[in-house]
């Protein structure tokens, strides 16, 4: 599923790469950018965490011309007026002017590297609202954000991730060189898909998925131990042999209404006792009714 996400998403999706200090996710973000450039999409990057020279290294030269970097790394808050983009410009209007200023103004990919920087400097409520505005604005086809989850309160991370259509959490794996990615994807119909995969990134920024981690294999041994035969170590015999079973089935149970028993009861044979009764005028037909004798 990780590869499906990297293949590109439908319009209006919002993907968050969630990482932590122990397992940085920038390289995965970069490989996504690489894949998008290969698909000939326009990519706009709001860069706060790396210099403008750092990101294009490793990408193809002729791909790089579709990459537009709006750097806020040197001066993120606009103190010395050196940046082309500051944190406070993060509004849907200024983003759409940024994107439409490029000659090929078809729907573009917006990469935010990283959301954490915005969360540090803006109110989370404001960020959520603006992200939603940008998403519905139409100028941007897909929003990609990198979020360092260990830098913020869980509540803020939860609120931002609640907005996203796809969340990819990158976690370190103790054994081996592969990295674990947990992908949670919400489809438009409300279905939720989840998968855990081990992946690695090659030198040329292609992602290789090695194996899928499924939970069923983890829980399987547990249930096996539980399902151990409880009748194994008993001091008495619970099992039936074939002969014993036959004998058991021959026994007529006392309260089972078999066909013979029924017919025997219905057609009473000759010589059986019988009660003959002719109703009398003073008979009490209904024991329950106390007012029987009244004319009502």
């Amino acid at each position: 599923m990780l590869l499906d996400v990297l293949q590109g998403a439908e319009a209006g999706s919002f993907i968050i790469f969630r990482d932590s200090a122990s397992c940085p996710g920038r390289r995965l973000l970069k490989s996504y950018v690489h894949a998008a450039l290969k698909r000939e999409e326009e990519v706009h990057v709001l860069e706060f965490e790396a210099s403008e020279e750092e990101l294009p290294t490793g990408l193809d030269v002729h791909c790089a011309q579709r990459l537009h970097i709006h750097g806020g790394f040197a001066d993120p808050l606009g103190w010395i007026k050196r940046s082309s983009f500051t944190v406070h410009q993060f509004t849907s209007r200024s983003i759409s002017t940024l994107i439409s200023s490029q000659p090929q103004s078809k729907s573009a990919l917006l990469v935010i590297d990283s959301l954490s920087w915005l969360v540090r400097h803006l109110d989370p409520v404001v960020i959520c609202k603006r992200l939603q505005e940008i998403r519905r604005g139409g100028a941007v086809k897909t929003i990609i954000g990198l979020l360092h989850a260990d830098l913020h309160q869980i509540s803020v991370v939860g609120s931002v991730c609640h907005l996203a259509s796809t969340v990819i959490s990158v976690e370190p794996r103790t054994n081996g060189q592969w990295v674990l990615a947990k992908t949670t994807k919400r489809t438009k119909s409300g279905k939720v898909l989840q998968e855990e995969e081990l992946f690695s990134i090659q030198e040329n920024l292609t992602v290789t998925v090695h194996s899928k981690v499924s939970h069923t294999t983890q829980t399987q041994p547990e249930t096996d131990s539980v399902e151990a035969d409880p009748a194994a170590n008993l001091t008495f015999n619970l099992h039936l042999s074939e002969m014993e079973r036959e004998a058991k089935e021959k026994v007529a149970l006392p309260f089972v209404f078999s066909q013979e028993k029924k017919s025997a009861l219905l057609n009473a044979g000759q010589g059986a006792g019988r009660i003959l009764y002719e109703p009398d005028a003073n008979d009490d037909f209904d024991q329950e009714d106390p007012d029987e004798d009244l004319d009502v």
Binding site: P124, V125, C128, K129
Partner: peptide
């Protein structure tokens, strides 16, 4: 009560 309603119930204790 979500953040999109301009409410910070979800963000702060």
């Amino acid at each position: 009560g979500s953040t999109l309603w301009g409410d910070d119930l979800c963000c702060r204790e």
